[in-house]
Amino acid sequence: MTMKISPAADAASPLRDALGAEHRPAVGEVRIVSLVPSLTELVCELGLADRLVGRTGFCVHPRDVLKTVPKVGGTKDVKMDVLRGLAPTHLIVNIDENRRETVEELATFVPNVIVTHPCAPADNLALYRLFGGVFHCADRAARLAADLGAALAEAQAVARALPREDVLYLIWREPWMSVARDTYISATLAAVGWDTLPADAGARYPEIDWQAAWMAGVSRVFLSSEPYRFRERHLAEVAALSGRSAAMIDGEMASWYGSRAAAGLRYLAGLRSALAEAT
C-alpha cells in the first residue's frame, strides 16, 4: 500500500494548511492516515488510495476501496498505538472534527500533519491545490477545481433565480439541534439561496427552542440524514413542532467538503429548484 515518489520542483507559491504551516511536496515513501471522512474520499479521488494506510471508522467512501484500509478508531477517539504502528508519513486532520490534544500528541511521531478547515464550498479550491502539490497529483486536483468552479456558478444561478429563504436545518433530535451560520453546512446552503436560522447563535451547533422569536422567520425545515439519522417518520413530528413544511435532505451532500463539494452544490441546487416548483 505504499509507493516511492521522486523529488519534484517546488510549487510557484507556498503550500500552506489551515494553520498557515507550510508543506513541501512529498519525497520518498508516502503513507497517509486520514482522520477526516470527506478528505479520505478526496484522497481516493486524487488517485492516492494506494498510499492510504489508515482511516477512521467513519471514513466509508468509497466503500469498495476502503474495505482493506485499517481503521484507527474514530475522529475523536483515535487508537494511538494502532496509528503509530502504521508508521504514517502524513496525517490529515480537521479543526472541527478532530481534538486538538489528540492531534498534538500525534504530531510527536507523525512527520507531516496537514490541518484543514474549509468553511465554505470555495475553500475547497485551496484544499485541492494543497493536496495536489503535496502529493504530486496537481492535474487531478485541477480537474476537481474546474468542476467545482462550474458547480459554484450553477448554484449562484439558482440563488439569483429564486427569492432567498430562511431555513432551519436540523442535525439532532432530543435535544433538537441546528447549525450556526459560521459552519460549512450553512455556507453551502447559502450558496443556493437558503440562509440558516438562527442568524445569531452562541454555539456552532445550537439547541433549538421551538418557541424562540426567530422561528417566525423560518420558511422551511430540513431534516438531515446525518449525524442523526432522521427518517420520513420524523417529518410529521417536526412539522407539528415548527408549524412549517419539513423535508428530508442528504446530510453528506450538504456537509461533506473535499471531492464531494461540486456534487453537493448540484444536489442542493436541484433540490431548491424542485421544492420551488412544488410550492
Score class of each variant (00 low, 15 high):
82 V>M: 12
116 T>W: 02
98 N>S: 11
138 A>S: 13
264 G>Y: 06
168 L>T: 05
180 A>R: 04
63 R>K: 15
4 K>M: 14
117 H>C: 14
115 V>P: 00
109 F>S: 03
16 R>S: 12
140 R>D: 01
50 D>V: 01
64 D>I: 02
183 T>R: 04
91 L>F: 09
100 R>M: 13
225 S>N: 08
77 D>N: 15
123 D>H: 14
21 A>P: 00
158 V>Y: 01
154 E>G: 05
248 M>K: 01
7 P>N: 07
10 D>K: 14
28 G>N: 06
151 A>C: 03
107 A>R: 13
31 R>S: 05
20 G>A: 09
62 P>T: 06
22 E>V: 15
248 M>P: 07
51 R>E: 01
178 S>M: 08
238 V>S: 01
90 H>G: 05
150 A>S: 13
141 A>W: 00
4 K>D: 11
94 N>Q: 10
236 A>F: 00
93 V>Y: 05
27 V>F: 06
247 A>F: 12
113 V>R: 05
127 L>W: 00
128 Y>Q: 02
82 V>R: 13
274 A>V: 03
80 M>S: 10
3 M>N: 11
268 L>H: 05
204 R>A: 13
200 D>Y: 09
84 R>D: 06
171 I>D: 01
167 V>K: 02
202 G>D: 14
160 R>C: 13
72 V>K: 01
107 A>F: 06
278 A>L: 09
82 V>K: 12
34 S>Q: 04
118 P>H: 02
240 A>C: 08
59 C>G: 02
197 L>E: 06
9 A>K: 11
195 D>R: 15
230 F>D: 00
253 M>K: 14
98 N>Q: 10
240 A>Y: 02
88 P>K: 09
91 L>T: 04
170 L>E: 01
180 A>H: 04
98 N>I: 11
194 W>R: 02
79 K>I: 12
19 L>N: 11
170 L>C: 12
198 P>K: 03
15 L>S: 04
20 G>F: 08
109 F>L: 10
278 A>T: 10
159 A>H: 05
204 R>I: 08
174 E>Y: 09
9 A>Q: 11
163 P>I: 09
59 C>D: 08
221 V>D: 01
50 D>N: 14
233 R>A: 14
160 R>E: 15
233 R>F: 06
218 V>D: 01
142 A>I: 05
259 S>G: 12
130 L>H: 02
242 S>D: 05
98 N>A: 11
20 G>V: 08
